[in-house]
Simulated assay, not measured.
Amino acid sequence: MRENLVLQVLLVIIVVLHLSRRPAEGVRWLALAKMSWLGSLSEEDGCDRLAGLVKRQKRLCRRNVELMDSVKTGALMSIDECQAQFQNRRWNCSTTDSNRLFGRVILKQETRESAFVHAISSAGVGYAVTRACSSGQLRKCGCDRTVRGRSKDGFEWSGCSDNIAYGSAFSTAFVDARERGQRRKNSSRALMNLHNNQAGRKAIEDNMQVECKCHGVSGSCEMRTCWRAMPTFRRVGQLLKEKFDGATEVKSAIRGTRLVLMPLNPQFKPHTEQDLVYMESSPDFCEPDPKLGSLGTHGRVCNKTSKAIDGCDLLCCGRGYMTRKVKLVERCRCKFHWCCVVKCKQCERIIDEHVCA
């Protein structure tokens, strides 16, 4: 009897440990980027047919059908920006499978790359929804009308301020939906994803800009009206890429009754809301691994003179590289013809291109 009780206790402990490490595959919804028919989604029942969504996300979809096209736009923006920021690295954010997109490196692992994808995708949804609000495309939201009055710098708050509060709130509800359920099971992976999701939104919120318009005779700017606007999404991507390079490796720990993340190295200062965090070292991404989601670096163009990660030594993982002649066709000898026409010639030149073996 006592032995059975001990076995039952051990079984419970094993289950709890399994749940605490159970992966929260929170970016499956990015598959919406591949759905061409999403823009015509009009019936509430259609939300149940969307791949990659958990029940909470489907409920949000049914209540906010008009926002789903913005969610798709945000997904596309985040994928494009990820690929722009990582185009010269071994992992270049290439999508592999239409449903899993980035493979296990994002869905199953707790790496820096996973942290960046969660942050940029959360930012993408918040950005796209906010932009749709400001452009008047949505019935549920509009400009931020709380920014009013005269500022201490002497200008008048007016115009259409971007409603980042609404965009961030929807991003929190939609993007964080899967992890919210996992967090109640004390999942350290869910806690990591939630943190990085919030860091993505903070990259927009903390970098709102003031844009102004002058009024007065002949543009004298006797009076200025100003409004708050989001930074460009390229700027958001750059900020998050900087956070990726300086990401903090963390571990989970119990504080009281709560599961928290703390730096793996106690000598490092605690991470802030703006920082990205990860819990697992990244693979080298040198060789193709479809299950992992790595395409490898064979055949990638490298920079022979660079000592950085885009250089042939690092990008090619020490395998060496091949040099080939490539013909470039460019516009040249351009001339301005009155009025308003620029005419150019087509010039060809041969360059050396270096490709990883």
Rank of each mutant, 00 (worst) to 15 (best):
R2I: 15
V6W: 10
L11V: 12
V12C: 11
V12I: 13
I14M: 13
V16N: 06
L17Y: 15
A24W: 02
L30P: 01
L30T: 01
L32K: 00
A33Y: 03
K34S: 14
D45N: 14
D45P: 08
G46W: 01
C47W: 02
D48A: 07
R56I: 07
R56N: 09
C61H: 00
C61K: 00
N64T: 00
V65E: 02
E66P: 01
E66W: 00
L67R: 00
L67E: 00
L76Q: 04
E81L: 03
E81Y: 06
A84E: 06
Q87S: 09
R90W: 04
S94P: 03
S94C: 08
T96V: 13
T96L: 12
S98R: 11
I106N: 04
E113A: 07
A115D: 04
V117E: 01
V117D: 02
A119K: 04
A123K: 02
V129E: 00
T130G: 02
C133H: 01
K140I: 04
C141S: 04
D144N: 09
V147R: 06
V147E: 04
G149S: 07
D153S: 15
G154V: 09
S158Y: 08
S158E: 08
C160Q: 03
S161Q: 07
A165W: 08
A169M: 08
S171H: 03
A173F: 00
F174Q: 01
V175R: 01
D176W: 05
D176F: 05
K185D: 09
K185A: 12
L191P: 01
N193S: 08
N193G: 09
N193E: 07
L194Q: 03
L194N: 03
Q198V: 07
A199K: 07
R201C: 02
K202M: 15
K202Q: 13
I204E: 06
V210W: 13
V210R: 08
V210T: 14
E211P: 04
K213W: 07
H215V: 10
G216C: 05
V217D: 05
V217F: 11
S218G: 15
S220C: 08
S220Q: 11
E222N: 12
M223H: 11
T225L: 10
T225I: 10
A229P: 05
P231I: 11
T232F: 13
F233L: 05
F233P: 02
R234K: 12
R234E: 07
R234Q: 13
R235T: 09
R235N: 13
L240S: 04
K241H: 10
D245C: 06
G246M: 09
G246E: 14
A253L: 12
R258S: 14
M262G: 06
L264S: 14
E280A: 10
S281P: 08
F285D: 05
E287Y: 10
P290M: 09
G293D: 06
H298Q: 12
R300M: 13
R300Y: 06
V301E: 10
C302I: 05
N303T: 06
N303R: 11
T305S: 14
T305Y: 14
G311F: 06
D313N: 15
C316W: 03
M322E: 13
K325R: 15
E330Q: 15
R331A: 11
C334I: 03
H337P: 09
K343I: 12
C344D: 02
K345R: 14
K345E: 06
E348S: 15
E348R: 10
I350A: 12
I351A: 13
D352G: 08
D352H: 11
D352I: 09
D352F: 09
E353L: 15
A357T: 10
